[in-house]
Amino acid sequence: MPDLDDLLDIRTRRPAAIAAAASARRKPASLFGPHGRLMIIAADHPARGALRAGDDPLAMANRVDLLRRIRTALARPGVNGVLGTPDILEDLLLLGALDDKVVIGSMNRGGLAGTAFEIDDRFTAYDAQSITTAGFEGGKMLLRIDPDDAGTVSTLEACGSAVSALAARRRMAMVEPFIAHRVDGRVRNELTAEAMMRAMAVAAGLGTTSAYTWLKVPVVHDMERVMAATTLPALILGGEGEAAYGEWRKALDLPTVQGLVIGRSLLYPAGGSVSDAVDRAVSLL
Results as ranks from 00 to 15, higher is better:
residue 235 L to A: 04
residue 258 Q to M: 14
residue 155 T to L: 09
residue 215 L to E: 06
residue 274 V to R: 01
residue 83 L to V: 15
residue 61 A to Y: 03
residue 76 R to W: 05
residue 277 A to K: 11
residue 70 I to M: 07
residue 143 L to R: 05
residue 89 L to F: 15
residue 26 R to A: 06
residue 145 I to K: 00
residue 142 L to N: 04
residue 148 D to P: 01
residue 81 G to L: 04
residue 141 M to F: 12
residue 49 G to I: 08
residue 285 L to T: 03
residue 2 P to R: 05
residue 160 G to F: 13
residue 106 S to Q: 15
residue 14 R to P: 10
residue 37 R to C: 06
residue 151 G to H: 03
residue 127 D to Y: 09
residue 102 V to N: 00
residue 240 E to P: 11
residue 65 D to N: 03
residue 109 R to Y: 13
residue 274 V to K: 01
residue 130 S to I: 08
residue 193 A to E: 14
residue 228 A to N: 06
residue 255 P to H: 00
residue 115 T to N: 07
residue 117 F to V: 04
residue 187 V to Y: 08
residue 255 P to C: 01
residue 4 L to V: 06
residue 168 A to T: 15
residue 72 T to N: 01
residue 187 V to S: 03
residue 196 M to G: 01
residue 13 R to F: 15
residue 3 D to W: 09
residue 237 L to G: 02
residue 61 A to G: 00
residue 6 D to R: 02
residue 83 L to I: 15
residue 93 L to S: 10
residue 246 G to E: 09
residue 222 D to F: 07
residue 64 V to P: 09
residue 38 L to R: 11
residue 144 R to T: 11
residue 255 P to W: 02
residue 100 D to A: 03
residue 124 T to F: 05
residue 58 L to Y: 09
residue 285 L to Y: 00
residue 67 L to V: 03
residue 237 L to T: 07
residue 50 A to K: 02
residue 52 R to E: 12
residue 211 A to C: 09
residue 275 S to A: 11
residue 83 L to Q: 07
residue 99 D to I: 09
residue 199 A to Y: 15
residue 132 T to W: 08
residue 134 A to K: 12
residue 88 I to L: 05
residue 91 D to L: 07
residue 53 A to K: 08
residue 150 A to S: 09
residue 278 V to F: 14
residue 53 A to Y: 14
residue 79 V to M: 00
residue 59 A to V: 10
residue 73 A to I: 09
residue 173 A to C: 04
residue 222 D to R: 10
residue 255 P to I: 02
residue 206 L to F: 13
residue 206 L to M: 14
residue 230 T to F: 03
residue 91 D to F: 09
residue 38 L to P: 13
residue 41 I to E: 03
residue 1 M to R: 02
residue 234 A to I: 12
residue 149 D to L: 02
residue 168 A to N: 15
residue 163 V to K: 01
residue 37 R to M: 11
residue 176 E to F: 06
